[in-house]
Nucleic acid binder design. Structure first.
Lengths: 188, 188
DNA sequence: GGCTGTAACCTAGAGGCCCTAGGAAAGGAG
DNA sequence: CTCCTTTCCTAGGGCCTCTAGGTTACAGCC
């Protein structure tokens, strides 16, 4: 019979798509095998186990997020860069919820060190803050506040945590504005 | 043979404890039954299914969080109340990670409406902001920013998202301070 | 075209989890 | 002591993960 032509890469990409559909926590090698018209056991030659599959999806997703953020902040600085970063971040989280969730799981440090996407995201964040002229430990405090707010917002938004009728996008823009003024007066 | 003396309440409480140990996503009726020395099927007279179990844990946890926050903000206002709220929130999230995760899952609106804990948490949040004299839509924007930052921070912290050596508690205090000044000048 | 080696893919099966249907037994009310 | 309610059980089906070991498609080479 004709082969499906599986590859570790194709399997991981399909898993990421599946995650965007049913949620990252609900990806299963059974469903993945079904989508390829293949038996479960066949996938275990491309992927060690579910845990391995998840970390591979995380690495892939972090790379895609980094691509978007990198494109958004290219050639920008200050408030302009902050707004572009924020927009790319939120868009990615809302358009690719499974992939976004994947970027947030904890990997062993070794895996993170080998994931270009994870590293690039950190670099972009620190790079974006360069224009505000902060130095340690203020810089790291600011990075943590930014990451917390961004992640918390899209996390609450995508789990339906915002019940009020107020337009969510408007709240987001307002928050990003507020963070900008905060960063400008961070040291005082 | 001697009975375990199960009750819906005891089952849910044990599930919450289990969640704090192994993570909310990893609670399983099998493990729960094992901890009671009882067969899986026995739990289904107290709980409809896993989904039901999870929402009950969520309701319990939201109530406990509300208790802590309520006690913390009692008799305080302004920056004092904000700091107390933030401290109670973070402490709960770090001490009871499974319960905290439970408070963040999305329930159908009907379940939320019947959960005193969820409602009280919303009230405490809006109440805490009263001292800053905001009116809609600024008020809701501010609530969303606060919730995002709080949730994002403890979420990243507990999943090991903060790799830098900078003391995490210090970053938290700094962020809460920053949010306070932000709220004071929100309308400008 | 046939041969061969390396994937890719398979069957078989063990073990865990969720959940239902229906039966047995403990403990209280009368 | 009897009856009734509730607790807990056995039996079993379905879906999932993962391993061990056997086939079979396909590419490259003669």
């Amino acid at each position: 019979m004709a082969r499906a032509g599986l590859t570790a890469e194709r399997v991981v990409r399909a898993a990421a798509d599946l995650a965007d559909e049913v949620g990252f926590d609900n990806i299963t090698v059974s469903a993945l095998a079904r989508s390829f018209g293949v038996k479960d056991a066949s996938l275990y030659s491309h992927v060690k186990n579910v845990r391995d599959l998840r970390t591979r999806v995380a690495v892939l997703a972090a790379g895609e997020l980094a691509d978007r953020i990198g494109a958004a902040v290219a050639g920008r600085a200050g408030k302009d860069a902050l707004a572009a970063f924020a927009g790319a971040y939120r868009d990615f989280a809302l358009e690719r919820p499974g992939r976004y969730a994947a970027t947030q799981i904890q990997l062993d440090p070794a895996a993170v060190a080998e994931s270009p996407g994870h590293l690039r995201n950190v670099e972009y964040t620190y790079g974006m803050l360069r224009a505000y002229g902060l130095s340690e430990p203020d810089l790291t405090d600011a990075v943590r506040l930014l990451r917390s707010t961004f992640h918390g917002f899209v996390s609450l938004e995508s789990t339906g945590g915002f019940g009020h009728s107020r337009d969510v996008r408007a709240s987001w823009d307002r928050s990003v504005d507020a963070l900008h003024t905060l960063l400008e007066h961070w040291t005082s």
